[in-house]
Design a protein around this nucleic acid. Structure first.
Lengths: 348, 348
DNA sequence: AACGACGCTGTAAGCGTTTACATAAAATTG
DNA sequence: CAATTTTATGTAAACGCTTACAGCGTCGTT
């Protein structure tokens, strides 16, 4: 039941284990005849090299570990795509794991990756991610995506969430919204807090003294739905009008929001204008198509991996101790103006 | 620059390497005092066990390999979610790889996984996947998802694509469509061919003698757009009316189709009714919401992994040679009736 | 007081590879 | 044709870890 080992192949081909290894790895100092016999034996026995043994002796795995909050869904999937494309271009494999928002799971995942990867790409946008830093192997090159982890990383790529929040508000104001509201992400999420901060600062600047409704969601479609419902109910009770513009902290929630608004018979964008965040693929297909702050999620993944590869090369070349904390790229989200915020008559 | 090894930890804690190992793995035959010293040394040195070495000696990795055509996008992402949920429930890790439709890449991926995983979950819906079977390590438990790979697998879970095609046609007929068309997936894709076959058989049965327009897409949104355009152009040229019902072989293409139809000012569903396939999350949000054949993509992944775990357990228990080809589950897609095919006045 | 039982610890073998080094055979040279 | 280089092959060590086994105190029991 055990798989064939190199020893088996060598015996079958009647050569030494060293020659077998050389033949299989395509080194040139092997007689053609021997190579033929070895390859034949290998395929006959369905030999597959033991990656663990190999990485043990070679001290490299050609694999990078990717740790994300989740490994599915529009957003993370798109990150993975970026990472995948960049990784395959360099012949690297991916060990992907999701932490499900749980620091302990993240720690467990990191340990499980230990010794199986040459570098780590981590996204852990939680406010308490510093705990993660404490267990990260010192020797592994590390790049973070949109995470505040500490100063252990050799590179990082992050999003200007605050600036995005500001842009969203400015856009809604441009479109003539006189009252604003915000559906935020969870308080435990660093990014969500930054977006909220951006919203508040810009909203207070543009509409001094005004009250802005806030609802705390958790980045799921369902919570966006609840958020819109909450605003609708509150307005029904107090008799106040609905906010004219809502900045929703991610597109998934904005989609839920759209659903609730449609159910309630509120016209988007004319009664309520909506701006999301992320520009996940689904945003284009929502009805009306969703205005949003494009982050370039694909590029987040791609450039993250590139940064990591750089760090890995630096690391292996200069076997030195000088591990300077690498560059920190910040990308600015860009407004994508679609129908959900395109008001017919912005009462200038 | 190298990471700390167990030996380093042992030296630091002033114990033997064996005791260090025992302490770290939580065996009970270690003195409390020793355990404390070891754990302290380990965290001081940021020790992370070398997974390769571990799997080498233990002959297991607690990791399963997942090979999909791609590892992103609505469909595969949803599969991964199912696999992830089931895997984490069992404490298994995931080594994920995409083959990008290239058999050689798939082969490379399988080799790269060799010796790093305890089992393999493979989806390779290509007509020439038999080539893959030839390189799969004999000893690894293998489960396939929606793939015709040969008889090497210990289990498989697949979709009744033919039946789904039939259901789609029957539904369109029910809705009063008198003329039908089909946008198919690529000819190299086994599943696409089955759906097409289902369409043709049912269409010929329901509408004997009629011609059905066909367009060959490649499962991308863009090709769906092209397909609809092709139908529109052909009809404009010949003066014939548009087909009243289109069965599109997956939802992504159906979304593209919807876009083209909207651009052309064709009313969906009243002028043209549409049915997709898969029920990916985006289907609900299209406008109009897309009727489709739900496959339960999440469950495909989840049950696939469960099958694999079963096979792995069988494998390790009965160390026997009896590897019977495991069960083959077939799931039937179920019609989800949304607005894209809900015709006001089915002219009975 | 001698004995076995028990609990903790260390020594060393072995997991499947790669690769430096030694060796043997073949090819090149003067 | 002997001396020398080149080329092909084999031997054995090393990678970091787990674990069978042996060693050795410490007890409790006759």
């Amino acid at each position: 039941m055990k798989g064939a080992t190199l020893k088996d192949v060598a015996r079958e081909a009647d050569v030494s284990i060293a020659s077998a290894s050389r033949a299989i790895n395509g080194l040139d100092n092997v007689a053609e005849e021997v190579r033929r016999r070895v390859l034949e034996a290998a395929s006959k026995l369905r030999y597959v090299p033991h990656g663990g043994a190999r990485s043990l002796v070679m001290a490299r795995t050609n694999t990078v570990g990717v740790l994300l909050p989740d490994i599915y869904g529009e957003f993370f999937s798109e990150i993975i795509r970026g990472v995948d494309v960049a990784a395959r271009a360099r012949g690297l494999h991916l060990l992907v794991s999701g932490s499900h928002g749980d620091i302990n799971e993240a720690v467990a995942a990191v340990r499980a990756m230990g010794g199986r990867v040459d570098g780590l790409l981590v996204m852990s946008p939680f406010v308490d991610s510093q705990d993660l830093a404490a267990v990260l192997p010192l020797n592994l090159p590390l790049v973070t995506i949109a995470s505040r982890i500490g100063k252990v990383e050799q590179g990082s790529i992050s999003i200007d969430n605050f600036g995005g929040g500001v842009k969203a508000v400015e856009h809604l104001i441009d479109q003539g919204c006189k009252t604003l509201a915000h559906i935020s992400g969870p308080p435990s999420n660093f990014e969500a807090q930054e977006r909220r901060r951006g919203f508040l600062e810009a909203a207070n600047t543009a509409l001094p003294g005004a009250e802005h409704r806030l609802f705390e969601g958790d980045f799921t479609e369902e919570s966006g739905y609840r958020g819109a419902k909450a605003f609708l109910n509150a307005c029904a009770q107090t008799g106040e009008p609905m906010p004219e513009g809502i900045f929703v902290a991610n597109d998934m929630m904005a989609v839920g929001c759209l659903l609730a608004l449609r159910e309630a018979g509120k016209a988007v964008p004319d009664e309520v204008a909506l701006v999301g965040f992320d520009d996940i693929p689904i945003a284009r297909f929502a009805s009306p198509p969703l205005s949003t702050l494009r982050v370039g999620v694909f590029d987040l993944g791609r450039r993250g991996l590139e940064l990591l590869v750089d760090a890995m090369e630096r690391d292996s070349l200069s076997d030195g101790e000088d591990r300077e904390s690498g560059e920190g790229i910040v990308v600015s989200p860009e407004l994508v103006f679609r129908d959900s915020s395109r008001r017919r008559a912005p009462p200038a």
